[in-house]
């Protein structure tokens, strides 16, 4: 705390003091906002790791006492939870694979080639990303019923892919844009074909970014509720299964379910935090 130093002239000390107050203010705000975000997560985590009788008790304690996996086990053993978790994983992985396969060439084309209609393509992709799934799900469900592919995990994965595709394309485009074209040229000078140059040079450099786009697709699919409840009947995904159990579910089920849904998101956001801005930030460009 420099402003406490008596050797400095008073006006300088005053300026340093104001600076210090401002810095502390920023810290206080940062910590306050962090608490606002983390506290609810902490509270539901304490519930998920308490005994079931503690979950039902009132008033509720701030720390779990004793720590127990009883509530979590109760949730995981509830009917349909394990199988719907499996379904969710299948849909999420299918979405990940499909969106990456379709989006990678498009992202590469948008970042590497200057072609007529490029801006229109970019804009078109941008404008569909915000469309509410509420609008898409009903007619698609009716179409799927007519086509006889209703209540299938694959049809849900198709819809989830449509949902994440615009974002995946833009993220992957920004990832390719970050690798200078000169590297590809250099590889070709040293005797690589364009395809070889892509797989030997560009691919390894862009793999983390593409993986981030894939993780984003996975999380989106894992979280998606509305289309899942509309498109599946017997093959429910986890969010759909939880949503349909809510009206007759006990508090331990709800708390453990909420926590269980949270965990992958928290982990995955940690891995893709570097790409957040290319994922959501570049909308304005």
């Amino acid at each position: 705390m420099l402003f406490l130093r008596k050797s400095l002239p008073p006006d300088q000390r005053w300026a340093l003091f104001r600076n210090w107050v401002r810095r502390m203010g920023v810290y206080a705000l940062a910590i306050l906002i962090s608490l606002w975000i983390l506290l609810p997560i902490w509270l539901i985590a304490t519930m998920a790791f308490s005994t079931r009788s503690n979950v039902r008790s009132f008033p509720k304690p701030f720390f779990p006492d004793p720590i127990s996996t009883d509530t979590m086990q109760f949730f995981l053993n509830a009917e349909g939870i394990l199988s719907s978790t499996g379904n969710s994983l299948i849909v999420a992985f299918a979405t990940l694979a499909l969106s990456t396969i379709i989006a990678t060439p498009a992202g590469y084309a948008i970042s590497r080639f200057v072609f007529r209609g490029r801006d229109a393509v970019r804009l078109g992709i941008l404008s569909v990303r915000a469309f509410p799934i509420v609008i898409l799900a009903v007619p698609l469900a009716v179409t799927f019923i007519n086509l006889g592919i209703y209540d299938s995990l694959w049809s849900l994965a198709l819809l989830h892919t449509a949902l994440v595709l615009p974002t995946s394309v833009l993220v992957i485009a920004s990832v390719f844009a970050s690798v200078p074209y000169e590297l590809e040229e250099a590889a070709q000078v040293f005797g690589c074909t364009p395809t070889m140059a892509f797989f030997r040079v560009v691919m390894p450099l862009t793999l983390p970014g593409i993986a981030a786009a894939g993780i984003f697709a996975f999380v989106t699919s894992w979280n998606e509720v509305f289309a899942a409840v509309l498109l599946t009947l017997t093959n429910r995904t986890l969010p759909a299964q939880i949503l349909f159990s809510l009206d007759k579910a006990s508090d331990p089920f709800k708390f453990a379910g909420g926590f269980f849904m949270l965990v992958p998101s928290i982990i995955f956001i940690f891995f893709i935090r570097r790409y957040l801005f290319s994922m959501w930030g570049q909308v304005t460009k």
Binding site: I37, N223, R273
Partner: peptide, 22 residues
């Protein structure tokens, strides 16, 4: 702080609803 502020990006509306229900 950026990571903490970004955590809700990955949280589904169902999970958020259950958290606030609690």
């Amino acid at each position: 702080f950026l990571y903490i502020f970004a955590i809700p990006l990955g949280i589904s509306d169902l999970a958020a609803g259950l958290v606030w229900y609690s």
